[in-house]
Design a protein around this nucleic acid. Structure first.
Lengths: 208, 208
DNA sequence: ACCTGAACACCGTTCAAGT
DNA sequence: ACCTGAACACCGTTCAAGT
């Protein structure tokens, strides 16, 4: 079995003194800034340290390697996001289903959108290549194929085919991708597959 | 406005002679092998060239830089995938909606699953850090929060809460992520948001 | 038209020395 | 307890020389 060498991804040590906390915060801030301005490809440890106003050696006291820095940055962000989702869920305790769904999607979407540049920078911080053009080309081909298919349906016509088509494709591809990232068991993946089909069907019935 | 420096991502030149085609294929094959065995982090140009049986210089005749190699590899894969989706769409021309949805999901899912190791290796080929643990921890928190919320619904009970919960979370998060990757216009994003809500609602009604 | 591989610049990481 | 920065190993990329 193949596995990446187990690397320590958590911080080497936690800041104990006030100035150390300042240092770590400065490093995080510098990293975010550099990601926003230069992109992940030009993010170097030297540049991060320089912008944070410390030496590289100091950085390596808190993060055993560059990956751990990016990891910690994403961890911070996801922590905050999870907290907000938990809050929303509690606030809708005992509410009707429709309210829950709306609130859940709304919260997630809002957090991602209110600082869309940071969201995108973090998505890309874990990415080596700029695959935007690739995705665009792929999406165009698929949209055309599925759009033509849907338009030809024997048992339905759509008021807004393009929107329905975009939704369907985005939901399916996004779901599958996420399913892969979570490394579900075959049983769970199978169940998800069936539910996804059920969901898309009931959606199309509602959108006709 | 910030933008990554525009780098040439397409191959420097196309192979014209037979031995050149062999070279390029060997490079692709070596890259896939190394990704599967060592992971993206230990994928170096020297190693790729060595395993492909050519010199680094040769590799750089066809790929202007390492990113272009990974890019081309993903492009190849997506080309094949798009082709299969197109085929499926044509085969369901004029069919009922339910058949279309089933075939579309089935095709996509099957292609991704039949060589799951390659799928995952390619997903990770574009990724710098091993964020599996991060995703797992985040997913666990969110699952717990949304699960408790759903269980408390005033107007519904679920036969299989866990499956419904997993489906809902995976669909929402995957869709949003995909929406971000596609860089939709605000209008399109807004429409998608509403459609996603509609979809999740009609799903929950069907799954109650 | 295609291939080679030593050479170069730069980046991640360390560690002996400092406050 | 925290910080420094020169030094080292290694990787991406080039280019003069070859078939």
């Amino acid at each position: 079995m193949v596995s990446a060498s187990p690397r320590q991804l958590t911080p080497r040590k936690r800041p104990r003194q006030a100035r150390a906390t300042v240092t770590v915060d400065a490093i995080f801030e510098a990293t975010i800034q550099l990601l926003l301005v230069n992109g992940p490809h030009r993010l170097t440890t030297t540049r991060v340290a320089q912008r944070a106003g410390v030496s590289v050696g100091t950085m390596y006291q808190y993060f055993p390697h560059k990956q751990a820095l990016i990891y910690a940055l994403n961890e911070r962000y996801l922590d905050a996001l999870a907290g907000k989702i938990e809050l929303t869920c509690r606030s809708k305790h005992g509410a009707p289903l429709d309210d829950m769904v709306e609130a859940l999607i709304e919260t997630y979407w809002r957090v991602k959108t209110e600082r869309a540049d940071v969201t995108r920078a973090l998505y890309r911080s874990v990415v080596e290549i700029d695959n935007e053009a690739l995705i665009e080309a792929f999406a165009a081909r698929v949209d055309a194929a599925t759009g033509a298919m849907l338009a030809s349906a024997s048992d339905a016509t759509f008021a807004d085919l393009n929107t329905v088509n975009l939704t369907l494709v985005t939901v399916i591809f996004g779901t599958v991708r996420n399913a892969f990232e979570r490394e579900l068991t075959p049983t769970a993946a199978d169940a998800l597959h069936r539910q996804l089909t059920l969901m898309c069907r009931s959606y199309l019935r509602a959108a006709t």
